[in-house]
Amino acid sequence: MQNDNEIFEEIKHSPDLNPRTEFVNDTRHLLIKKANHIRKVSKIKKLSYYWSVVIASLAMIAWTSLFGGNQYIVKSYHNVMSAFPKNKEEILTASNKNPSVFIYHTHNRESFMPLLKTKDPIEAQDKTKNITLVGAELSSKLNEKNINALHSDTDFEQKLRNRKLDYSKSYDISREEVQRALDKNKDLKLIIDIHRDTIPKEESTVKIDGKNYAKVVFYVSKANKTYFAQSLNLAKTLNYELEKMNPGLSRGVILKDSPNTYNQDIFPELALIGVGGPENTLEEEYRTIEKIAEVIQKITNE
């Protein structure tokens, strides 16, 4: 029996073939017939795919509109999305185990004239470029000092608008987030609500070692009947340490007669801090934040 190589050599050296015209035509018609069959099968497959998509879409529409499938989809969506962090607070919760400091901003849109390039203090409000940048800086500085800190940049003002609530209800909205932070993180030792005050530049700024710093003030609500003594002691301690390390940086502790507790009634170590005013620069704010981080490190270690 001949092997493949022998057959190949025999064909290679065989004389040229001269097929009959009928054979060529028959072969051509056969190839055309097979090509048409292949195209027909391909077209049928495409039409089947198209109608499958159409039928599936119609079935989905009928299911969602007639049989309550939309509720299932919404529920499934929320279940999936709940597995992912929705905002910075939750991202930090996932990345920092056992946080000891939680930072947030009840009046989160308070901003700075130099940052927004405006000369009107009333216009020193912004959705993104605002006091939350200062809180983020404090969180970063604390984490650098091995103090686990959570920072929330939640837009509470937007939540007020969504619920059609007055601005005076800001603390009611931020209270919900403070409570969530407490529920999720059992090792919290300090909570800080950072604001920007409304005082002019000459009152909100101090020069230390040739550099401008935004001055700090600590507020304590008299309406807080639950933890008033602890809130006052915390404010006095922070103020004392800050002044001892940086004389003139603090404007002191101010007791407020407001009926609002500033959420100090739900946690004994909750400090409301005002840093600078509308005319301060972000650099001045950041310099002060570095000093506040040093104080927090000191009292945390103690």
Rank of each mutant, 00 (worst) to 15 (best):
G135Y: 01
S174D: 13
D155K: 00
I208C: 10
R109P: 01
S168M: 11
Y219L: 15
N130E: 08
I173F: 06
F218V: 09
S168P: 04
E177L: 08
E123C: 09
A223F: 09
R175M: 08
E137W: 05
V101R: 02
P200Q: 06
H195K: 12
D193C: 07
T132R: 10
L150T: 01
D166W: 00
A223G: 15
Y219T: 11
N212Y: 13
D120R: 06
L150P: 03
I194V: 13
N224G: 12
S100C: 12
S140R: 08
T132M: 09
D153A: 15
D126F: 06
D155M: 02
K129G: 00
H151M: 13
S140F: 02
S100M: 15
Q179S: 10
R163H: 13
M113Y: 07
L165K: 14
F218T: 06
T106P: 03
P114V: 05
L150K: 04
S139D: 02
K119F: 04
S111D: 10
F112I: 00
A124K: 04
L138F: 03
R175S: 12
K211G: 00
Q179P: 00
K207C: 07
I122A: 13
K211E: 14
K189P: 08
N162P: 03
T198R: 10
F102P: 04
L133T: 06
L115W: 09
D209Q: 01
I192N: 09
N130M: 06
R109S: 01
R109L: 03
D126Q: 08
K129R: 13
I173G: 08
I194R: 05
P99S: 01
P99G: 03
R180K: 12
T118S: 11
L115Y: 04
V216W: 05
N212L: 12
D209P: 00
K211I: 03
H195D: 11
L116Y: 05
L182H: 06
N143T: 12
I199L: 12
P121E: 05
R180F: 04
N148S: 07
N224V: 13
K127V: 10
S168E: 14
N146W: 03
D197N: 12
E202Y: 14
R163W: 08
T132A: 12
S111H: 11
T128P: 04
L188M: 05
D155C: 02
R175A: 12
I208F: 07
I103E: 02
M113W: 06
K164R: 13
E110K: 05
E110D: 14
I199Y: 11
D126N: 15
H105E: 09
G135D: 03
V216I: 15
K189M: 12
S168V: 13
V206N: 05
E177W: 04
K141A: 01
T118F: 09
N224T: 11
A223K: 12
K119N: 11
F112A: 04
D209A: 03
K189G: 10
I173D: 09
P99Q: 02
N185T: 08
N130L: 09
A214V: 08
V220K: 08
L190S: 02
R109H: 02
E177T: 05
K207N: 14
T205I: 02
R196A: 14
R175C: 10
S100T: 15
S174C: 14
S174E: 12
N143L: 11
V101P: 01
N143F: 07
K207T: 15
V206E: 10
S139Y: 00
I131F: 10
T132C: 11
A214Q: 07
T132V: 14
H107E: 14
H195S: 05
L150I: 09
D153H: 09
D193S: 07
S204P: 02
